[in-house]
Write a protein that binds this DNA or RNA. Structure first.
Lengths: 360, 360
DNA sequence: AGTCTCTTTGGAAACGTTTCCATCCACATA
DNA sequence: TATGTGGATGGAAACGTTTCCAAAGAGACT
């Protein structure tokens, strides 16, 4: 039994004894047909196991019923959940998702968008390194393809679904200040390729100033430090005077907890830690993580919803930011005066210290 | 500036002053052309910003250069990472990924496969509730579309990439026995829709028997219990005599730790816990999780690799299972004789106790 | 000069669909 | 009976490609 070619609408028409146009109209319910004819066509289609060929359809109708989705990585659950949100929102709509990951690489971002364009996607949902500078994305807009960004703060001429990183990060600074911290730090993994991280830092920094705190130390770490707590510990040890750390995402915050333990520091007594994102495991830790809670899934849903609206001709309009909330965990407390006193002796100047890891 | 339609190969041919066939040959490097002609065509294409239209191509060549990927959910990082693996493996190959999620629903599985078929994917990579009973999947195979499963143990007539769940789970039983546990339990979230869970239970059960342990209690919990530690605690409290728990995935294992804390039990002193999957956060917990370590990303990569081979006509062949390793964390220890003695008084018979949650 | 071969080229069909348009038929109205 | 109305139907073009095939031109050989 060789793989016999799938039935086409011609086959259906032939079996039903009618023209192709009629078969098409019946199967699409897109035009008049007598009851008799309707039955014959439907029966023929069923008997042949007919289903439409998307390529033929796309070619003729200039609609691929496919939307392109570009995210940095699916290994990051934040993006994976967002895509899940997109998927769930698109579920009944008839649209498929063509997916692509850039691994946080600008060139890959552009290549991916180009590929999506070649596949004539009807719309694009994306999180990129630099959407504002992407030539491919421009091209998409020129072609009239609606583009809906996720996670990016509002950008000129782009519609985006986002959480106000600046404000949310400011809230963390506020909490730090209220708890009595004076010297705080901001820990980021991919600072240069993530406008989210940069905006969080900016908001954090601004609010620190507003509250009279010292300018926060910006600690940019490597993949390796993020992965091995003892490496991270070595880096943290160089910021002894910092009593509270704002990690730009929850995994980092959890890694900080582990690293702190490694140094014999207690969280939150010796070091307060606050994360960002609000992943579920954070709740389940022995010391539940204090964090900014967001919903990546809602982000994806809303981005998809916007796009669907645009696809229905309703126009693509910028919505207000998604809400976030400050989740009170147990990793934020007042600074330990004893520790700070003791340790400050050994502390180094820290307004913007080198972010490099010590060589091993 | 209205969205002007993208340039077609006809436009290129016209501008280059040649026939369509020639333009196609040059742009595809698929046939002879004089140097002069080559240059003219390439220049024209560049000037027009031409790129191929995938639909036209797919229609004529009967190759969509798209592979369909179906997983239960992207909210589960195990699957998300697997898809990431697929994606990374497919990167330079020219294939796109059309993605779909079933939310662990059998009907949705079938619908998704059908949709993929309509989109004439060239191959399918899937994890389903019941691949062996999927009519749509049969249809795919009949059409000669290569199918590569992920996470499923080998199945009649299907090629799958997997970790030997039976053996891996047996290893956990072995460790429990060696540590001196006699009464153990197996905790699962979606037992009925996951052959993985079932195979893990089977392997665990078999090895418990082989080692002379009591038959493990099968504890099937609801989404809600998995989410709220106090609910899970209530359930666990009904299995006081169980001294070691094998959770069918790491998140569950982490939830168990939290629930145990809620009951005032120490892990591992009062209750040993072992997980499955080997997610990264497990390492970072205050009490690092003991677990079976696997690599979902490698799973995706290998599945994709198989499929690529098949697509190149090399034939799709079943590979041996992927390796796993037992990660020594700190959540497995010898049972606490005191606790077991004390608590057994209140214990209920537990060979196969009701798996339902107490009504609230 | 005639014949052959080889390379370069373009015309046209085919892929599966949708949709415009014309035709046909039945029936109602004048 | 002639005219008009309106629904049902099918032919054919078009969407953007690839590829088969034939034609045309350039040398090389007899």
């Amino acid at each position: 039994m060789l793989p016999l070619p799938p039935a086409t609408i011609k086959d259906v028409a032939r079996l039903a004894g009618c023209g192709i146009a009629t078969a098409s109209r019946v199967l699409n319910k897109s035009g008049p047909a007598s009851t008799d004819m309707r039955e014959r066509v439907e029966r023929a289609a069923r008997d042949l196991g007919f289903s439409f060929n998307a390529a033929g359809r796309a070619l003729q109708s200039r609609k691929s019923m496919t939307i392109g989705c570009l995210v940095p990585s699916l290994a990051n659950p934040v993006f994976a959940e967002a895509v899940q949100g997109v998927q769930s929102e698109l579920l009944g709509s008839g649209y498929q998702i063509l997916i692509s990951c850039s691994n946080y690489d600008d060139a890959a971002d552009n290549a991916a968008i180009t590929t999506l364009l070649e596949n004539s996607v009807d719309g694009i949902i994306a999180t990129m390194v630099a959407p504002d500078r992407s030539a491919a994305l421009m091209q998409a807009k020129q072609r009239g393809i609606p583009v809906s960004l996720m996670f990016h703060d509002p950008l000129d001429g782009m519609v985006t679904t986002y959480v106000d990183n600046f404000v949310a990060a400011g809230e963390v600074a506020r909490r730090f200040a209220t708890s009595g911290h004076r010297r705080v730090g901001f820990l980021a993994l991919r600072f240069s390729t993530s406008d989210r991280s940069r905006n969080r830092y900016a908001g954090f920094h601004a609010q620190c100033r507003a509250r009279g705190l010292a300018d926060p130390s910006l600690i940019e770490i490597s993949e390796e430090e993020a992965r091995y707590p003892e490496r991270l510990a070595a880096t943290l040890a160089r910021y002894r005077d910092v009593t509270a750390l704002f990690a730009s995402n929850d995994f980092l915050a959890i890694a900080v907890q582990k690293a702190a333990r490694h140094l014999g520091w207690q969280v939150p007594q010796d070091l307060s830690v606050v994360g960002f994102d609000g992943i579920e495991v954070g709740r389940l830790l022995e010391t539940p993580l204090t964090t900014i809670e967001t919903s990546p899934e809602a982000m994806g849903q809303r981005a998809a919803q916007s796009l669907l609206n645009a696809l229905q001709g309703l126009g693509l309009t910028q919505q207000p930011p998604l809400p976030f909330s400050f989740r009170e965990g147990e990793t934020l407390a007042a600074p330990n005066p004893k520790r700070t006193d003791d340790d400050r002796v050994a502390a180094q100047p820290s307004s913007v210290p080198p972010a490099q890891a010590p060589k091993q």
